[in-house]
Every structure is written in structure tokens, then in C-alpha cells.
């Protein structure tokens, strides 16, 4: 038998595809697939949340706090006073299904949030900036408006789904819902939702004080400062523009015949 020397042919055992093409296809494709799955899950979780009855929601989130919430001392007088104010405002709601809880977040940026289970988080930054109880009452009333419309369940899907993904990928069955204040501050409500919450909040303020004097004074001050300060960037990012809001609120008070003059109540701290 004759031996015929022959070189092995190239390209049989090795694919021609450039490694970077392979890498790009895989990275882009897998990212797209995962993003789609995550988005679909978030979508369904958020729809499902809207169908949870209020009693279930309260039972589910009774003692819950966001993961990264830094609360002030429970002996802080501001906590008691804010809680009292919320309770008084909620009294005018009539049949409020929530037992509202107030927590103060140790953060310098001014913000207020309505969270599941009737939890209202206000930041120290906000409390530092309010000059009268009436201003605070409107901010709180606005958050109560979100509860009435059940807006506060929005954007929870992301936290829940992300913590689910995290639990699956890391393999530890972390039972707490991975919802963070940092995530929640990113959620924005639609203009309609905000306007509706504003209307409800202002009505509570009127019912409580008999007038709406200074209710939106905080936003007027922020507007005057020409958005230059970062203090309220957080609140502004999740709430309507201060200037438009002041006009809308004034128009609303005029329409409803709510007096814009009346004696102010000092904050009690």
C-alpha cells in the first residue's frame, strides 16, 4: 500500500464564525430574552397586584419595610407628630381601609412615598423644609390620595421580580421582598394620577382645617428657587413640576370654593 502524504484540511473541526460575532450574538440574544422574560413577569405581577383586595394587601405587608430604609429613632417627636397628623387626615377619609403607619427615612432629599400596606415614608429632608403643619398636611394628604387610588402598588413588580431573579440565580431563598426605597423613588405616576391624588389631598386639608391656606406654599418656594437646588430633586422627579402644580391647585381651590385664607398651624417640633 502506498503512503501518500497529505496535510489535514482546515476548517473541518473549527467553525469559521469569528469569536466576536459569536460573543455578540450570544450577549445580545440572551440579554434580549432575559429582558423580555423579566418585563413580562413585571407586567403580570403589576397587573396581579391591582387585583389583590385591600385586606390581603394589608395582611401581606403589615410589618413590611423597604430593604434599605434608614429609620430615625422611634422616640423622635417628629415621628409621633407626623403619625398624629396622618391619622387626623385619614379620619376625614371616612372608611379608609388602611391602618396608616408613618416612617421617617434618614435622607436629606425631600420626598414622601405611599407604600404597600398603608406605609407612608417621609424623608427628614422634607420635614426640614416644611414651615407649617398645613404644608406637611397637604403632602401627606396627597400620599393618602395615592392610597385611595391604589397607585402605590405601581412599580412594585420590578422589586419583586428582581428579587425573584436574584433568589433563583444565587440559589438562596431570600424570603423578604427586595423592594428598595431607591427603586421606588424612580417610579413616576402619570399626570392624571398625580392630579387625582392632589385633589383628594387638598380636600382632606380643607376638611381638616376649614381652609387651604399655605397648603401648596412648599411648592411655591421650590419653584421660586428655580429648581437650582438638589434638595428637592427627588420629590420633583416623582411629582409634577412645582410651577404647574401651584397653578392647578389654586385653580382647584377656586373652583371648589375652598378659602385660601385662614390661620396657620405651627409644626409641633
Amino acid at each position: 500500500m502506498r503512503f501518500v502524504p497529505r496535510q489535514p484540511r482546515e476548517g473541518i473541526n473549527v467553525s469559521d464564525t469569528h469569536p466576536l460575532v459569536e460573543a455578540g450574538t450570544l450577549i445580545v440574544g440572551l440579554t434580549a430574552i432575559f429582558a423580555l422574560i423579566a418585563l413580562a413577569l413585571i407586567f403580570f405581577v403589576e397587573i396581579a397586584l391591582y387585583f389583590i383586595p385591600v385586606e390581603k394587601e394589608v395582611a401581606l405587608f403589615e410589618d413590611w419595610l423597604p430593604e434599605d430604609l434608614v429609620t430615625v429613632s422611634p422616640n423622635d417627636n417628629r415621628l409621633d407628630q407626623t403619625q398624629i397628623l396622618v391619622d387626623r387626615l385619614a379620619f376625614h377619609w371616612g372608611d379608609a381601609p388602611y391602618q396608616f403607619r408613618v416612617e421617617i427615612d434618614d435622607s436629606d432629599v425631600a420626598n414622601a412615598m405611599a407604600l404597600p400596606g398603608g406605609l407612608i415614608v417621609v424623608t427628614e429632608g422634607l420635614l426640614d423644609q416644611v414651615e407649617s403643619e398645613n404644608e406637611l398636611a397637604f403632602v401627606l394628604g396627597h400620599e393618602l390620595g395615592h392610597f385611595r387610588n391604589r397607585d402605590h402598588l405601581r412599580a412594585l413588580g420590578r422589586g419583586i421580580v428582581l428579587s425573584m431573579f436574584f433568589a433563583v440565580t444565587t440559589g438562596n431563598g431570600e424570603s423578604s421582598l427586595g423592594i428598595k426605597v431607591a427603586d421606588l423613588t424612580l417610579r413616576g405616576f402619570s399626570r392624571k394620577q398625580e392630579a387625582s391624588a392632589d385633589e383628594f389631598g387638598l380636600q382632606l386639608v380643607y376638611t381638616h382645617y376649614g381652609h387651604v391656606n399655605e397648603a401648596w406654599r412648599l411648592f411655591e418656594r421650590w419653584d421660586d428657587r428655580d429648581h437650582a437646588l438638589l434638595d428637592f430633586a427627588s420629590y420633583a422627579s416623582t411629582h409634577p413640576d412645582s410651577g404647574d402644580r401651584v397653578e392647578d391647585l389654586a385653580a382647584l381651590a377656586q373652583r371648589q370654593g375652598w378659602p385660601i385664607a385662614g390661620s396657620l398651624t405651627e409644626v409641633k417640633w
Binding site: N13, S15, P19, E22, A23, L26, I27, G29, L30
Partner: peptide, 16 residues
């Protein structure tokens, strides 16, 4: 890249 490929299967072209 092979790790990513192992999620969906197919030729692990970078190992060939």
C-alpha cells in the same frame, strides 16, 4: 462565551 452558550446549547465555537 462558552458559559453563555451552555444556556441555550449548540456548538461551543470558542472551544473548537
Amino acid at each position: 462565551i462558552a458559559g453563555l452558550r451552555s444556556l441555550v446549547g449548540g456548538r461551543i465555537k470558542t472551544y473548537e
